[in-house]
Computed example of a mutant assay.
Amino acid sequence: MSRLVFFDLDGTLADRQTALSDAVTGLCRSRSLPPAADQWLRTELADRANAADFARLRDAFDLEWSAADLWQEYVDLMAAAVTCRPEVLDGLTRLRDAAWTIGVITNGASDIQRAKLVETGLADLVDGVAVSGDLEIRKPDRRLFELGATRCGVSLADGGWMVGDNPTGDIGGGHQAGLCTIWLRGRPWPEGLPAAHHVVDDVTDAITILLNETWE
């Protein structure tokens, strides 16, 4: 098996939920949006966000600004607010030192996901990134994993690992791509979905498992 690991971004390497709350608060304060708009944003962006959401926001509340301006401000606020814990960054550094190839496979709009990677420092620690917005396909589609492998300069046929918190997208997608999987428990597990190879409570535990892998 190849010494390759893919990580999910939101909810795995980075804390999206806290950043979302901060970004929505900042946007509403900056634009003096009403409480109803604040609640709308928190509901509509709970799982994902893209530029089209801000066109809907503009229409719903008859806002004077363009959807593009609102989206860009949200992207900037999210990138500034999102965090990756130092121990996670340290763990990724240890994986690199141990000759692992590290990729990120994430669902979302390309601009906001890449901005998060840069601002958290993760961009400097990964070999390749595949964002669903790059191809307009989403995990668990195998093609996104194939793109990730290509951008890491490796072949998916050589195997590897997928680490993430989404049972269907990360673990189910990893299985479809022929990868071993590590699930960060939390979300409900869908009936009929094959079990992950390992289950952990924190991404640092997943990194420890990988570092303890033996290679022939």
Score class of each variant (00 low, 15 high):
residue 85 R to D: 13
residue 11 G to P: 11
residue 24 V to Y: 00
residue 25 T to A: 09
residue 42 R to Y: 05
residue 90 D to P: 08
residue 193 L to P: 10
residue 26 G to D: 02
residue 8 D to P: 10
residue 133 G to C: 06
residue 119 E to C: 14
residue 188 P to S: 10
residue 88 V to Y: 06
residue 164 G to Q: 03
residue 144 L to G: 15
residue 57 L to V: 02
residue 105 I to R: 14
residue 5 V to P: 01
residue 77 L to F: 03
residue 215 W to L: 07
residue 7 F to C: 09
residue 150 T to N: 12
residue 11 G to L: 11
residue 190 P to C: 07
residue 156 L to K: 08
residue 93 T to F: 08
residue 52 A to R: 08
residue 186 G to R: 03
residue 177 A to H: 13
residue 155 S to Y: 09
residue 142 R to W: 05
residue 68 A to G: 05
residue 60 A to M: 04
residue 21 S to W: 15
residue 81 A to V: 12
residue 138 R to N: 10
residue 184 L to S: 04
residue 150 T to H: 11
residue 58 R to K: 15
residue 169 G to Q: 15
residue 141 D to M: 07
residue 5 V to T: 07
residue 18 T to Y: 03
residue 70 L to A: 00
residue 154 V to Y: 09
residue 73 E to C: 07
residue 82 V to C: 03
residue 56 R to V: 01
residue 12 T to Y: 09
residue 167 P to S: 01
residue 166 N to Q: 12
residue 152 C to S: 09
residue 72 Q to G: 01
residue 171 I to D: 11
residue 12 T to P: 14
residue 210 L to S: 07
residue 144 L to D: 07
residue 101 T to L: 08
residue 164 G to R: 14
residue 61 F to N: 09
residue 105 I to E: 11
residue 88 V to C: 02
residue 212 N to Y: 03
residue 214 T to A: 14
residue 114 R to S: 11
residue 17 Q to Y: 14
residue 5 V to D: 02
residue 169 G to F: 08
residue 119 E to A: 15
residue 182 I to H: 11
residue 175 H to C: 02
residue 111 D to W: 06
residue 52 A to S: 11
residue 131 V to Y: 07
residue 45 L to T: 15
residue 6 F to K: 03
residue 70 L to P: 03
residue 61 F to I: 01
residue 40 W to P: 15
residue 192 G to E: 00
residue 169 G to Y: 14
residue 60 A to Y: 04
residue 125 L to D: 01
residue 59 D to I: 04
residue 171 I to K: 10
residue 11 G to C: 15
residue 126 V to P: 08
residue 173 G to V: 01
residue 168 T to N: 09
residue 74 Y to D: 00
residue 124 D to V: 10
residue 165 D to G: 11
residue 147 L to S: 04
residue 6 F to M: 13
residue 15 D to N: 10
residue 69 D to A: 03
residue 129 V to A: 05
residue 128 G to Q: 05
residue 206 A to K: 05
residue 84 C to Y: 07
residue 36 A to D: 02
residue 161 W to R: 13
residue 203 V to M: 12
residue 30 S to W: 00
residue 184 L to I: 15
residue 163 V to E: 10
residue 195 A to G: 05
residue 48 R to A: 12
residue 82 V to N: 06
residue 96 R to W: 04
residue 11 G to R: 09
residue 166 N to W: 13
residue 74 Y to V: 02
residue 140 P to Y: 05
residue 140 P to D: 14
residue 49 A to N: 06
residue 162 M to I: 04
residue 32 S to P: 06
residue 157 A to M: 14
residue 112 I to A: 04
residue 185 R to T: 15
residue 5 V to Q: 08
residue 134 D to G: 11
residue 75 V to I: 12
residue 211 L to G: 09
residue 90 D to I: 12
residue 110 S to G: 00
residue 167 P to D: 02
